[in-house]
């Protein structure tokens, strides 16, 4: 009994030196002594950060464009198989900006959509801030001397809307809602994401329904005939505005508009895309327009 008292007294004295500490102990915010003892005997250790995986690019002295592509294609700088990635990839090439391409997917992007660019940084400075595609044009204008001037043309926006709406809708339809889904989307987008068949099924279903929702935004029903007709009209109009000049709107060098149309014409004319086109109607429509095919071949030869 006495020993016990002494022992508790000793603990008491060693634990708290002054009267003010004793007062603090009684407040409800203080740590109860058994828990404090437990934490003292089990010290908290902070482990060092893990090593970065080996596949992470160590060199950041080069601009890295994160796009949908294959591992093999990334090392060779092949054109992306995604139109919006290919548009910016081609634009960077037009502006002579050196960059490497990196295999990626939408989950990696800060904006939720590819492409994005991780600019190169000089040694000793902070980490690079990723540039999403919506700000890429401004970034290019700020960071390079040989920027391609975008001369204002009254009709620029109107013709760009043909690409962004009519041709994009036809692209979405022909890629996701026809048999091309199994020969192109599945090997390029679905299979690399996972090896689990259930996950693959879920991703495939998600992609298809997303495309369907997007197309249903503009009409109550998805009328394939109408979509193809409108895309064909758009291509006729685009070919007519290209005329006999080499680049759109009479420019001396290809610009963003050329990149935008190239992104679709190249992929539609690429017979080796995925496992090949199963539904070739849209490709056939593009092939009918000789000057657009020539435009695409010229870009492919000069820049890729």
């Amino acid at each position: 009994m006495l020993n016990d008292d002494n022992a508790s007294d000793g603990v008491y004295q060693s634990d708290s030196q002054s009267a003010s500490d004793r007062a603090a102990r009684s407040s409800i915010f203080s740590v109860p002594s058994p828990i404090k003892w437990l934490f003292n005997s089990v010290p908290l250790i902070t482990y060092g950060a893990n090593e970065l995986p080996l596949r992470v690019p160590r060199r950041n002295d080069q601009n890295a464009l994160y796009i949908f592509t294959t591992q093999h294609g990334a090392t060779r700088g092949d054109p992306s198989f995604n139109p919006s990635c290919l548009r910016w990839q081609a634009y960077l090439k037009f502006c002579h900006i050196e960059h490497t391409t990196v295999v990626s997917n939408n989950h990696a992007s800060p904006s939720g959509a590819l492409p994005f660019l991780l600019p190169s940084v000089a040694k000793g400075t902070d980490r690079a801030v990723p540039v999403p595609s919506s700000k890429l044009q401004r970034w290019v204008a700020q960071n390079t001397a040989n920027v391609v001037d975008e001369a204002y043309d009254l009709r620029y926006d109107a013709y760009l809307s043909l690409i962004d709406h009519r041709i994009r809708r036809a692209w979405l339809y022909t890629l996701y809602l026809t048999s091309n889904f199994h020969t192109i989307v599945v090997p390029l987008y679905v299979d690399p994401s996972s090896t689990n068949p259930l996950v693959r099924m879920a991703i495939a279903h998600e992609l298809r329904s997303a495309a369907e929702t997007e197309l249903l935004k503009h009409s109550v029903v998805i009328d394939a005939e109408l979509i193809y007709q409108q895309a064909e009209e758009a291509l006729i109009a685009l070919e007519s505005v290209l005329g006999n000049s080499e680049w759109f709107f009479g420019a001396r060098a290809p610009r963003l508009f050329d990149a935008a149309i190239f992104a679709y014409t190249h992929l539609l004319l690429d017979e080796k895309l995925g496992n090949g086109w199963a539904e070739v109607r849209m490709s056939r429509i593009v092939r009918k327009h000789g000057r657009l095919v020539h435009h695409r071949n010229a870009i492919l030869d000069m820049y890729f």
Binding site: D157, A158, L162, I236, A237, V241
Partner: peptide, 14 residues
């Protein structure tokens, strides 16, 4: 003209 037709298609889409 064919150019005006092309413009018509483009601007109606826009």
């Amino acid at each position: 003209s064919s150019q005006q037709r092309a413009d018509s298609i483009a601007f109606s889409t826009l």
